[in-house]
Each structure stands twice: as C-alpha cells, then as structure tokens.
Nucleic acid binder design. Structure first.
Lengths: 196, 196
DNA sequence: TGGATGGCGTACCAGATGGTACGGCTCGAA
DNA sequence: TTCGAGCCGTACCATCTGGTACGCCATCCA
C-alpha cells in the first residue's frame, strides 16, 4: 500500500471510529464494530494503533491538529483587538460546542490516560495562540493583561460559561456563538482596559 | 427490615457504589462488584433500583440533595454582598471540584439519560439560590443584574474558568478556592456595579 | 511478470457483563 | 412463639468484549 493510500486509509478508519462513537457512544464503539464500519480487519486496527486506547488516542491527536489549524488564522489577522478576540472566541466556541469536540471530550473524560493526553494537546495547541495575542495587546499598552494566566482564564470563563459542560451533558442550549464571543470580549476588555 | 434500617441500607449501598466508582471507574463498577462491596445481593440491587442506570440515577439524585443543603446556608447569611458571593462561590467551587462531584459528572457525561437528570437536578438545586440572591441585589439598587441569566452565566464563568473541565479530565490544578471565589466576585462586581 | 508484503474476513479464546432464579436463613410482625 | 416477607449468596444464562491466529487475495516492487 502506497504511503498516500495508507494515510487515506488511516484517516478513513479514524472517521469510522468518530462516526460510530457519535452514533453508539463509548460502549457501542467496540473494536469489532469499528472494524466492520471501516471495512477493516481487527488485526489491522491492532497492528496500526496497538489497542483500543491507542485508537482513541490517535483520534484525539488528529482532532487537536485540526483545531490548531482552524484557530491559528483567526488570531493573526491584523484588525482591532476586539474584532480579533471576537473572531477567535467565535471559532473556539464553534469548535468546543461542536459534535466532534464533545465526542472527543467525552472520550477523554471517561479514560484518565486519554484525559491527560487531551489536556496536554489543548494546552499546547489553543492556549499559546491566545496567550501570544493577549501579551501583544499588553505590550501595545491599551490592555493590561497581567498576570497573563489569569487574563486567559477570565476570557475563557466569560466565553464559555457553563455552555461546554451543558454540551457534554447532552443538554445543549441554542447559542449564537458570535454574539456570545462578542459579549465575552466586551466584558473582558472592560475588566482589562487600562483606561476604564 | 424497619424503615430506618432500610434507609440506612440504601445509603450504604449508594456509598459502596460511589467508592467503587471512585476506585475502579465506570468499567470497574459492575453490578457484581457493587453487590460484593456492599455485601448485598444482586437481586436486591435490581429490586431496589431497577437496573444499573437506575442505581446511578439514585446516586446522582442523592448527591444533588446534599449539594443543595450545603449551598443554601451560604446564601442566606446577611452580610456584605461581596462576602456572601465569595462564600457561595467558595462552597460551589469546593463542591464542583471535589471527588464526589467529579465522579457524578463523569457518570452523567458518559450516559445521556443520566446527563439530562444531572442537568435538571443542577438547574433546580443550585441555580435558583444564586438567581434569587442576585435579583435581590438588583432590587437593592447597588447592582444591575440584568438580564439575570447573563449575570449568572458571567459569575459562573468567572468563578469556574476551565477548572471544572480540567478536574473532569483528571488533570486537576491546585487551586485556592476561596481566593478564586474572591477574585471572581471582585471582577463580577466590577462588571455589574451601578457606579463603576 | 513473478514473488512477497500486508490488509481483509472469519474464527477462536478466555473472561466478564447485565439480568434472573432459587435455596436458606434472619428478623420483624402478629 | 410462630410465621412469612425479604435479603443474602450462589449459580446460571446468553451475549459481548479485547485480543490473537490464520488462510486468502490484491497490490506493489524488482
């Protein structure tokens, strides 16, 4: 199997895993069922991913990559800080309330090993983007984002509120993510602006 | 079996369920293992709780009751608003980051039915306390908590940030809950005070 | 064009699971 | 003191699980 074909096959297997998790949950996504869904052999799954946990880990890592590549463009655009923050917040909210992220987080919450992996992947992929942008704002002088980790925590808190937990519990509230991000941004700036 | 004995027995079974969930997780807490741990018969478990989901549901409901009775006193104390809010926030944070709540939330996130139950129990038990207090503040005039649900959402967001998700992922950060609650209260008041 | 690498499908294994059935015994009620 | 409700312990059932083994066949490389 050529390398590009192998990558595509791997992707297809992870897609099948994701779909099955979405439809049947953790319990329903057995290695048997995944293999059948992907029209792959169980032996192939084990050869490629080691074991069930390894398969799920691969899914989490792939998702983290896609999150980063979705979020990165939102934060480089040169525009008014509140617009950049709103754009970033909207993208982050769309991601974290989306079906894929909910599924990934459910997985990670059910298994401590996967939880550690997701937490690390999240800390590495999304937080630095926000941290860099906020510290740039601070350097420009209009905003005093210090201490930086508190500023980040406050922004994320204002942005997400209880929405993410609600989504994980399967009781999603209808939410206009753009309006929510705009509101969070406006409040955060009120807290951190140098001239109130 | 006398009624009081029966209540105690039921409590002991739920305790055993909680302990086993804590030690062995969802997978390890089989009906067999729970029965053995509680020195009860599987048949009794099924007779009293219907099935596995029913057992877990009973655990969730018992926890919700205890949460409410822990939180209610924090909010009736007549004191400065920021002190009441800080006290309430500390208690809520201690609860939601504690081992029991983490366990309960993991359970509810793994099973949609339990998720709906927990979300409803939470909405019924903890939110009204905060809602009533904030609207009293609003009535007194020093604070403009309107719209009320946004004010609540902002307070909870500032209070919890990403802490609850981190705890659920099994990557808890050391946190001084009282200081965190004080910080959240101070920021929230800055956002909602009538005279900035 | 030939041979070998490796994925597919199926079968197999031991163990565990949720749920039910059934003696035997304790303990509360009359 | 007697009797019956009901809990404990164990056994049982069909089913499913993660993980391994093994022919068979397509595809890629030389």
């Amino acid at each position: 199997m050529r390398d590009d074909q192998k990558d595509a096959r791997r992707d297809a297997i992870l897609d099948a895993t994701r779909d099955l998790l979405r439809e049947a949950g953790w319990r329903g996504a057995s290695m048997r069922a995944i293999a059948a869904r992907a029209q792959a052999s169980k032996e192939t799954l084990y050869a490629w991913f080691g074991n069930r946990e390894g398969l799920f880990e691969a899914l989490i890592r792939r998702n983290a990559l896609s999150v980063q590549s979705t979020l990165a463009p939102a934060v480089v655009a040169k525009a008014a800080p509140e617009d950049v923050l709103t754009r970033f917040g909207t993208a982050l909210l769309d991601l974290q309330l989306g079906a894929d992220a909910v599924l990934i987080n459910r997985l990670a919450i059910a298994d401590p090993v996967l939880g550690a992996i997701l937490a690390e992947a999240g800390r590495e992929s999304t937080l630095p983007l926000l941290a860099r942008f906020l510290s740039e704002l601070d350097a420009e002088g209009a905003i005093r984002a210090d201490p930086l980790d508190e500023a980040i925590e406050d922004y994320l808190g204002l942005l997400k509120g209880d929405l993410q937990i609600a989504a994980l519990l399967g009781v999603p509230r209808a939410v206009d993510t753009r309006a929510q991000a705009r509101r969070a941004t406006e409040r955060w700036i009120r807290l951190y602006a140098v001239n109130p």
